[in-house]
């Protein structure tokens, strides 16, 4: 029987989401995006129902084409940052509420995966414990994250390094070793 064929963007979004879904399901394990960078995430996740914040002009243009509303960081459900010199923006992220935890934001940051600070991860999705090296984030990033998250309130984090992606849901305990 003839069936519809996936378009190129459909195939890319499908593969991007597969990487994101497994990245968040298994925190700390590195997954592979079909294409490097954040563009694919925007196509897979963002449309006119989203409120998005970014510091990058090129990304901002791509986001505008999806119909999403450009908003300050505190009002955003998705935050794409390309420069992240200090952890201050974390304080503005939406953490959702006990009633609606899902309104907590998703933060997408560039990082170097595999070098730098050694982290120990525990929590759902982690078989015992997982260790991970992350570089390129401000020194107080992990302590700020820990201070902000009041589970089930919190935010999700995707770290992007070329085609590599790591996901850290709010449920993951991160210990800086």
């Amino acid at each position: 029987m003839a069936h519809p064929l996936p378009s190129v963007p459909e195939t890319r979004s499908n593969a991007t989401f597969d990487a994101l879904m497994w990245a968040l399901s298994r925190p700390g394990l590195i997954r592979t995006l079909p294409e490097p960078g954040m563009d694919g995430l925007i196509d897979a996740l963002i449309d006119s129902e989203c409120r998005v914040h970014t510091d990058d002009e090129t990304l901002a243009r791509q986001i505008a084409r999806t119909g999403a509303e450009a908003v300050p960081i505190a009002a955003a459900d998705h935050v794409f940052l390309t420069a992240f010199p200090d952890a201050a923006p974390l304080d503005h992220l939406s953490l959702g509420s006990d009633l609606y935890p899902e309104t907590g934001a998703t933060l997408i940051l560039p990082a170097r995966i595999g070098s730098g600070s050694r982290l120990r991860l525990t929590g759902p999705g982690v078989d015992g414990e997982e260790s991970l090296r992350i570089d390129g984030l401000p020194a107080n990033f992990w302590t700020r994250r820990r201070a902000l998250i009041r589970y089930p309130m919190g935010f999700e984090l995707f770290l992007i390094d070329g085609t590599s992606v790591v996901g850290l849901p709010r449920s993951t305990e991160v210990e800086l070793l």
């Binding site: 968040l24 996740l45 129902e49 849901p169 449920s171």
Partner: peptide, 18 residues
Amino acid sequence: ASAKREIRRKMLKAIAVP
């Protein structure tokens, strides 16, 4: 595509808050 995006966004949040 828009229906799929919404479901993707909600699936990620569901995974994050088991």
